[in-house]
Design a protein around this nucleic acid. Structure first.
Lengths: 340, 340
DNA sequence: CTGTTAGCGCCTTCAA
DNA sequence: TTGAAGGCGCTAACAG
């Protein structure tokens, strides 16, 4: 009734433990013995005990994924891709949700370390690389996904947030927009993208009006909703709005619908992330499409390379190009100064 | 440089291994020795090796969560609650995403079994309890969350889907609605809720018109969007729409906004799940609020009871009452037959 | 209460 | 290629 062990295979086949072990680990065994072993494994439904194996090899074949917010759609999709990639490489994934709490993030990393994961994928909440201390002490590699942490010496996969944002706002300007608002979060990605907005405005010599900037501590539907409400109520409202993530865009669209405004007639919009909203809303939103699958591939590749290869090579920072997926949410403005 | 072991504590303190082990497991030790041990632990930054521990105790203190769709907001929130609850009980959570694929679900369960998890929480994709075979053979308890599986003999936590749906549709009827449409998925929850719709219609003696029913294989924004488009195009459209989940509601709202329809003036709406949408859309949606936190508490409680207590007691099926959160998306219809 | 002695299931030297 | 012996880090009997 108990799960069968390698010993049972031994008594079943009459071979030595080490022979069986070698077979299990892909070594060369006489064909006749191989067949015996395979038959016994099938018969007893034997599966190696990963715990015992890990005790010796010091490899759990488990990766910890510490995620800023498990309930966000963006994270969910990253988790799906990475989980699948890891599974294909024989790794399992232990997910810990930091729920936007930097303190919890630190605990989660420590938890992963205690569980002896082989490596950690981190989609960070905070900017404080002190949170990584426990992993560093235990020599467990960490790869940062989607967001950098200034003080850290980890590999890091991001998109070129600032540059992508700059191009997005440039797109608005190219269509003749001058009164361009921005709704952004103060998190890493939100702020980087806001900097890109400023870059574009400056490069074009456009005025950055204070009342056109709306920000909040983190990306949320709430933020977009409230921001757009405020912008719509302005005496001299913008003609275009730049939004720094998916949830924010969702909130903006809700606010516009509620206020009876149309896109792009009343407001042109450009945002980030090609998720559900983008597939459903008409007119189709123009937005920066983050190559999420590629981000996951790169981060898993880097992490597994560290797991196998070690920490002696210098940290790599990969910034992936994020292009703009065309849509119809930006309208041509011939004379911006008379536009509503 | 290597992580310190219990042996290091032994040489540091001069005590026997078993004394230290006993201390670690909460046994009684002479105060003077306790202090020695504690000092050594701090000094060497010792943390017990969970692998070695698991090898003897046969408990990994890890729970596997096999989830139908990690990218859905509903699942995300369930994962957040359960993860937190488990962490507080000293358990880690290994999440496997089935991505709506029953075949992958079976693989995921087998994966959890191989990883020797102490128990499995399953939010199922399919209805086929054969997927649970590997867990059953290994005597690993499984608790079903949110959805039943007919043939299984597992504990199961659901809400009273059918009854809650019946009450929701009854609510529409009480406001004078007669031409009531339903957009539902063919998944377990979607279908149960559709049955509740039929119950209510029948009880009221209302006609169930074929053109008022729209369904699809699974819950999605797409489903709601397309369903609502179709309903709006009808010659004789419904006055109210019942939607079987959150994503569907989102799609419906999008379609209405796009078509220039207002809620509740043009269509009354009632749906499920108090998520982001519910917090942002105005007028506030009337909907069945699933007690997600309670569902998680119950399922974790049941699962840990199985982990400790064993499988000899008969399976428990808990159905939690889901109330209707009031909103303003259902309007009073005095004369339904003349309403648009 | 403390220490000694065996293992948990597996991998990895070493001889043969 | 194969087999015997030792040990990974820890807990669980015992005996003291």
């Amino acid at each position: 009734m108990m799960a069968s062990t390698i010993k049972d295979i031994k008594t079943e086949t009459g071979l030595a433990l080490s022979t069986i072990s070698k077979y299990l680990n892909g070594g060369n065994v006489r064909t006749e013995n191989r067949e015996k072993i395979e038959a016994a494994i099938r018969k007893l439904d034997y599966r190696p005990n990963e715990m015992a194996r890990a005790l010796i090899t010091k490899k759990t074949r488990t990766i910890g994924f510490v995620v800023n917010d498990i309930a966000s759609q963006f994270s969910g999709i990253l988790l799906r891709y990475t989980g699948e990639l890891l599974r294909r490489s024989g790794y399992s994934m232990m997910i810990c949700d930091s729920a936007h709490d930097p303190g919890l993030e630190e605990k989660n990393i420590r938890f992963c370390v205690d569980k002896k994961v082989d490596g950690i994928l981190l989609l960070p909440v905070g900017r404080d690389s002190e949170n990584l201390e426990s992993a560093k002490r235990a020599h467990i590699p960490v790869v940062l996904l989607d967001r950098e942490m200034p003080g850290s010496s980890c590999d890091c996969i991001t998109i070129d947030n600032r540059e992508a944002a700059r191009r997005a706002v440039e797109e608005l300007a190219l269509h003749g927009h001058v009164r361009i608002a921005a709704i952004h979060s103060e998190e890493y990605t939100g702020y980087e993208r806001f900097l890109g907005y400023l870059d574009a405005m400056r490069a074009r010599g456009l005025t950055v009006r204070e009342e056109y900037i709306f920000s909040g501590p983190m990306h949320s539907t709430q933020l977009g909703y409230e921001g757009m409400k405020k912008l719509m109520a302005l005496e001299d409202p913008p003609t275009a709005v730049f939004m720094t993530n998916y949830e924010v865009s969702l909130g903006v669209v809700m606010a516009m619908n509620e206020g009876g405004c149309r896109c792009p007639e009343d407001f042109s919009l450009i945002g980030f992330d090609e998720l559900t909203l983008a597939l459903v809303v008409r007119p189709r939103m123009t937005l920066v499409a983050q190559p999420m699958e590629e981000m996951c591939q790169e981060s898993v590749r880097l992490l597994l390379a560290r797991v196998d290869g070690g920490m002696d090579t210098p940290p790599r920072r990969i910034s992936i190009y994020a292009g703009i997926a065309p849509g119809e949410s930006v309208r041509e403005l011939s004379d911006p100064y008379t536009a509503a």
